[in-house]
Simulated assay, not measured.
Amino acid sequence: MSFNIDEWEPRTKMGQLVKDGTITDIDEIFEKGLPIMELEIVDALIPDLEEEVMDVNLVQRMHKSGRKVNFRVIVAVGNKDGYVGLGQGKAKEVGPAIRKAVDNAKYNIIKVRRGCGDWGCVCGREHTVPFKVQGKTSSVNVNLMPAPAGVGLVIGDVGKTILKLAGIHDVWSQSFGQTQTTVNFANAVFNALKTLSEVKASNEDLKKMGVNY
């Protein structure tokens, strides 16, 4: 379903600022550390988001009224140019579970710091991670390391999906733990990407690694 900003009735002050055109870049929101409370904010500021369903799993649990069965879906969203989100959704049917997961992924969207951090590559383009980072979820550990242009994404399929949506084209990786558990592996990769923006570095060092911000 396409988003029509004219039909949007904002419920928050930030939403109104976005609709009025006062805020035109989602980075303004990220830089201030403000929570995104309306999905329409993401739809308005990053209109070219793509969605990828990575896992659909049947979850059963016992309840006093009997066995409860739900679908759990994991979805990644991204614009393949520096923004990516990861979300989960549960429902009795697959369709509603996917919609919940997409919404959750949009609420969790982050900006991914990219660059050219491999010593053997001096192209200066934002094609890989600028430095080594680690992400952890449960028993799964994932290390992402800079790779020269042309290497591609040396990581499992779940990681490839997330990295492609983030706009990363080349990376070396190491994975440890129960990596076949899709939800944990996906979250570990996503947490590694979040760490990229949390690492403190001087503007001079970032410039050497091809990072534009």
Rank of each mutant, 00 (worst) to 15 (best):
F71R: 08
P47I: 04
K106L: 09
D103A: 15
V102N: 00
I74L: 15
M37Y: 13
K106P: 08
G33E: 08
P35C: 07
E93W: 00
R67V: 14
I26A: 03
P35G: 07
G33R: 06
E126G: 08
F30V: 10
M37C: 05
K68Y: 12
N104F: 00
N104S: 14
K90M: 15
R114L: 13
S65N: 12
V129R: 09
L58N: 13
I98L: 04
P130Q: 05
G85T: 00
V102Y: 00
P96M: 06
I110F: 09
L86S: 04
P96W: 07
G66V: 07
N57S: 13
A76G: 09
K111F: 08
V102C: 00
F131K: 02
I110H: 07
G33M: 07
G89F: 04
V59S: 08
I74E: 05
G33D: 07
D25V: 09
V102W: 00
E126S: 13
V75M: 01
P47Q: 04
I41Q: 01
D55M: 07
P35Y: 05
R72C: 02
V77C: 05
E51D: 13
I41S: 04
I74R: 03
D25E: 13
G66I: 08
Y83L: 01
D118G: 10
G85D: 03
Q88M: 12
I46M: 06
N104P: 01
E52T: 13
K80I: 00
E50K: 15
C116I: 04
R113C: 12
V122C: 13
G124R: 11
N57P: 00
A101E: 09
G85S: 01
K68G: 00
I29T: 09
L58D: 11
Y83R: 01
V75E: 02
V112Q: 05
G120H: 12
I36K: 04
G66L: 06
N70H: 12
V102M: 05
R67H: 00
N104M: 11
K111A: 14
P130R: 04
T128I: 10
I46R: 04
V77S: 02
N57W: 10
I36D: 04
I98H: 03
K132R: 15
E50G: 11
V77P: 01
P35D: 09
L39P: 01
G66M: 07
D43T: 05
D25Q: 10
G117R: 02
V94T: 03
